[in-house]
Structure formats: C-alpha cells, structure tokens
Amino acid sequence: MARVVKTHKLYQQVTDGIRDDITSGVYSPGDALPSEARMIEEYGVSRTTLRQALIILRTEGLIEIHHGKGAFVRHRSTAATALDRPRTRPLQTIGDVHSSREDANPATAALLGIAEGSALYIWDTIATEPTTGRRVLTRTLLPFAAAEGTSLETDPFPERPAMLATLATRHGKLTAKEHVTARMPTPDETTALALPDITPILETTLITAAKGRTVLAETETISAEGIQLVYPIKQG
C-alpha cells in the first residue's frame, strides 16, 4: 500500500489502491484485508474516507464486510451475481403475498400509460434467490382493462406463462421492453431487502405491450451489490 496524495477525491484513490491490490493478487479470495486502523495509517486518510472506499468495493462485489470481523476478499465465483433475463430464474417467496385492487396513482399511471384512477390489480412479494440468498422485491401491475373479458378478471395472477398466454389470446402479439434503474433505496426497501448501510439497488421493470398498449408491468428490486446483468443477444 502507498500513502495517497491528498485531493478532494481521497476515497477514490483509496478505492483504486485496494482494488489494485486485490486484482494483482496481493490479497487472494478469502483473505482478510488489514484492519481499519492499519489501512488508515498506511493511506494517511480518515476513517470516514476509508469506509467510503470500502463501501464502493463492496458494491462492486470485490469484498464482503462482516461486522466485528472486518473486510474479506470475495471468492471470484461469487464476486458478481449474474441476473439473467427474461425472468426465468426461480424465486422463493418469503412472508405473505399481498394482492389488491387499487386505483392507479400518478406514478403507476405514468408507468402503464393509463389515466390516473384507472383500476389495477397489484401483486407484491418479498422473495429470495435460492442460489445466492439475495432478497428480491417483486411487484406485478395488471391494468383491469387488460384483464377484462378474460379469466384474469377472477384469477389475475396465475403462473406467468399462463398469464402471458391469456393476454396474448385477448390482445394479440405481445412485445416487451425492460427499463433498468440504479438508485438508492427508500427506508422501507432497505428494511425489506435487509441491506447494509449505503447500498444502492437495481430496479428492473419489464413492460409488456400489445398493439401499442401496456398490458402488464413486472418490477424486481434487488441489491445492486456485485450485480451483472446478462442478456441473451440474437445475432443476425
């Protein structure tokens, strides 16, 4: 480690220094980083600056922090979690499932391209990914107008393939577009996702439409720590 040159971006220099030590093999997967006191002394920075750097490295998926034990280099096999699309990975619901019929507020109306006050079916869950243990918040919005005249009026949330088949039969060919947003969580999201302090989240919303009209919106919210999005690309 080398003492950094003091600028207004000290935390970035510390981040770069620790990252270089990890990627060059100074620290191997599973190794503990030096104590906070030692790194503060060697880099010549404050505790706040050092912790900013460690938060960035944790978010990048390079380290994990165990309270009371310190920071450890993540094993490369788990340094980044691949989030596959479309939504075919299994999720295990924890706690209660909340389903309701509500009127569209300004945010949901804008998302779905419908008038405020339009009737919606809403399905909310907290789930986990069995392979990683990460918590995932899911929300499905089904406009009543899209379900009208189908079995979805009485059973709005069957298994996803059945829902899509019903919507396709009623409305014709379906198309989809996904919106991906990284942001900081609300206090409720921090609690629901059991996030460490100052952890960004990744929000992905899949909008399904038919004939230019949105018939379904599916949102997943997950910790952005160490996430890589993996999309299949069709060539030719």
Score class of each variant (00 low, 15 high):
residue 112 L to M: 08
residue 69 K to R: 11
residue 195 L to M: 03
residue 177 K to P: 00
residue 12 Q to K: 08
residue 152 L to C: 09
residue 200 P to I: 07
residue 200 P to V: 09
residue 113 G to S: 07
residue 56 I to F: 10
residue 28 S to R: 14
residue 208 T to V: 14
residue 220 E to R: 07
residue 31 D to W: 03
residue 29 P to M: 02
residue 160 R to M: 15
residue 180 V to H: 13
residue 235 Q to C: 11
residue 125 T to W: 02
residue 53 A to D: 03
residue 73 V to S: 00
residue 3 R to V: 15
residue 82 A to R: 09
residue 137 L to A: 07
residue 90 P to M: 05
residue 119 A to I: 06
residue 133 G to F: 08
residue 232 P to C: 05
residue 90 P to D: 12
residue 125 T to V: 11
residue 117 G to P: 01
residue 211 K to T: 11
residue 164 L to A: 07
residue 176 A to W: 11
residue 190 T to H: 12
residue 233 I to S: 07
residue 42 E to Y: 08
residue 83 L to S: 02
residue 147 A to P: 01
residue 72 F to R: 01
residue 24 S to K: 01
residue 64 E to N: 09
residue 150 T to K: 08
residue 234 K to C: 10
residue 47 R to F: 13
residue 118 S to I: 04
residue 89 R to S: 12
residue 207 I to E: 01
residue 199 T to E: 15
residue 87 R to E: 15
residue 25 G to C: 05
residue 127 A to K: 05
residue 21 D to C: 02
residue 227 I to W: 02
residue 236 G to L: 12
residue 57 L to T: 00
residue 129 E to V: 12
residue 104 A to W: 02
residue 158 P to Q: 13
residue 70 G to V: 01
residue 70 G to I: 01
residue 162 A to M: 10
residue 210 A to T: 04
residue 128 T to K: 03
residue 192 A to I: 03
residue 3 R to H: 11
residue 115 A to L: 14
residue 231 Y to N: 12
residue 125 T to M: 04
residue 65 I to C: 03
residue 25 G to F: 07
residue 229 L to P: 06
residue 200 P to R: 01
residue 26 V to S: 04
residue 135 R to Y: 15
residue 206 L to I: 07
residue 179 H to I: 14
residue 75 H to R: 11
residue 116 E to I: 10
residue 174 L to V: 09
residue 49 T to L: 05
residue 61 G to I: 06
residue 101 R to F: 14
residue 124 D to A: 00
residue 68 G to R: 04
residue 143 P to T: 10
residue 78 T to L: 10
residue 134 R to Y: 14
residue 168 A to S: 14
residue 74 R to Y: 05
residue 203 E to I: 00
residue 165 A to K: 13
residue 102 E to L: 12
residue 23 T to E: 13
residue 175 T to A: 11
residue 206 L to W: 03
residue 104 A to C: 08
residue 182 A to S: 09
residue 219 T to F: 05
residue 114 I to V: 15
residue 218 E to T: 00
residue 50 L to W: 04
